[in-house]
Computed example of a mutant assay.
Amino acid sequence: MTVRVLVVEDEELSAQAHAAYVRRTAGFELAGVARSSVEAVRVLRSVPVDLVLLDMHLPDGHGLALLQGMRAEGFLCDVIAVTAARDVEVVKRAVSQGVVLYLLKPFTYAGFRTKLDQYADYRARLTAAESDVGQQDVDEMLGVLRTTPQRTTVPKGMSVDTLREVTVALRDGVGRSASELAAAIGTSRVTARRYLEYLAAEDVVERSVRYGGSGRPEVEYRWTGA
């Protein structure tokens, strides 16, 4: 069964990236994109939605306030928080209000896909369950959401911390060459290029050719992802 997803994200580039990621993931389809709480409620009232990908920082209120309003209005769709909010109180409140998974920005498509696959596994088990379930059935269904997936999100030999530095440096949307990025994060050009090529393969960085000066053209990398 296809999962219909509503992306709630105020930042335009991130909203576009999340929508593209949903379309790219088997078993999921995009129900809509909302840039505010008001838009999100409008979509929920107009089309069926199974899963909401919810940012916490919205222009017309906090994501948790939107979630509370959704529940009060009877929208029982599942919610995955997709946000840069790292405050432990926000995490606690999100869990208490029924957020099933929490995905921190920045991330690549691989990290995004892992969360959706985790949710799809949970949903498949829930759908396949009998009308009456035992304790083991419940434990297994909830365990899918609570267990850390074993999939590696970066290739062997690459560091998650360095990947985070690279993505943070690129998120201002300014195009950079491998040499410029290397200088910005304090690593070698070869290392910077390896991470840039990895992000390009994940479709969160766009390559282009930069001309200018008397030297050979350089490859420029610009962030387009989440």
Rank of each mutant, 00 (worst) to 15 (best):
R176C: 00
E89I: 05
V49P: 01
H18E: 13
D137F: 04
G134W: 04
A40P: 03
L30V: 14
L101H: 06
W223Q: 06
V160D: 11
A94W: 03
A200D: 09
D78W: 05
L67K: 02
A201T: 10
D203S: 14
G173Q: 01
R146G: 06
A184H: 01
R23D: 10
L196M: 09
F107T: 04
T167D: 00
V41D: 05
A124Q: 11
F107G: 03
G186M: 02
L66T: 01
Y122C: 01
R171S: 15
V22A: 09
C77H: 10
L51W: 11
V43F: 14
P149N: 04
Y119G: 11
R216E: 10
D87N: 13
D161P: 01
V90T: 15
I185H: 00
E9T: 02
H62Y: 06
T153G: 03
I80Y: 08
S214T: 11
R93L: 10
T162L: 12
V205A: 08
R113I: 01
A120K: 11
V7N: 00
G175H: 01
G173A: 04
K115S: 10
A34S: 06
R151Y: 05
A110C: 06
A85G: 06
E165I: 03
L51P: 11
A124N: 12
L30F: 11
G225A: 14
V133R: 05
Q68N: 07
V49F: 10
